[in-house]
């Protein structure tokens, strides 16, 4: 799961009004961020009949969900709508396992910075497929600059702060300082752009090929 937020009521309620519900709640990433209390409150306030509810972790794991779907098959059979509280991955897994059933999500998912290896951290990687860190003193311009500029600052920084997100430091000022510190300012002369965006699509779509 990534971080999730519960959808606005007016978006979910009309979809489930008067329906018999079976509810899946994912607990897998509550250690990351999951508004468990909001979800419980929402479920408790529902007027609809709830024919069953399964709480499990790692709703993104097809194998586990498969076993739950089997275990709760009778209740699921009786429901008109399967309502899922999880990130987008969990919802897709549930609906792929219950293809002939109406599956709705109660959540919007958002991506937390740096949540790729372990939990979120101060670093972020967008997996662009061609790492620029050797030219930028180990500071990533793709993720740290809102415009993902590769060839230097846009000129909009004020007191070292980014003009798009004034809380953030201008990535290119940080890069400059870093390169200055390690005596590698000459690297800045290299022209890095334009990026190869086709890498993102071609390489991640055929992973098998990359492996070899």
């Amino acid at each position: 799961m990534l971080a999730v937020q519960i959808k606005p009521e007016e978006e979910i309620l009309p979809k489930i009004s008067g329906k018999k519900l079976f509810i899946f709640v994912c607990l897998g990433c509550q250690e990351v961020y999951f508004p468990r209390e909001d979800v419980e409150r929402f479920i408790n306030n529902l007027r609809e009949e709830i024919v069953g509810k399964a709480l499990l972790d790692y709703l993104c794991n097809r194998e586990f969900v498969g076993e739950y779907v089997k275990g709760y098959s009778k209740q699921i059979e009786r429901a008109n709508v399967i309502l899922v509280f999880s990130c987008g991955v969990g919802v897709q897994v549930v609906s792929s396992l219950l293809e002939d059933r109406v599956v709705y999500t109660g959540c919007d998912t958002l991506y937390l910075n740096g949540f790729q290896g372990l939990t979120s951290q101060e670093f972020n990687c967008n997996q662009c497929g061609e790492c620029y860190l050797n030219y930028t003193g180990g500071i990533c311009p793709i993720t740290n600059c809102p415009k993902s500029l590769l060839d230097g600052a846009c000129g909009g920084a004020k007191n070292g702060k980014c003009e798009v997100d004034p809380e953030a430091d201008c990535a290119w000022i940080l890069i400059y300082k870093k390169l200055e510190k390690i005596g590698k300012l000459d690297i800045l002369k290299k022209i890095l752009s334009p990026r190869d965006h086709s890498k993102i699509i071609t390489e991640s779509l055929s992973r098998e090929e990359i492996e070899r």
């Binding site: 334009p194 990026r195 190869d196 965006h197 086709s198 890498k199 699509i201 071609t202």
Partner: peptide, 13 residues
């Protein structure tokens, strides 16, 4: 069309 089908496949769609 998607850019990967054309003559500048590296372009950002």
């Amino acid at each position: 069309d998607h850019p990967v089908l054309g003559d500048h496949p590296e372009a950002k769609p």
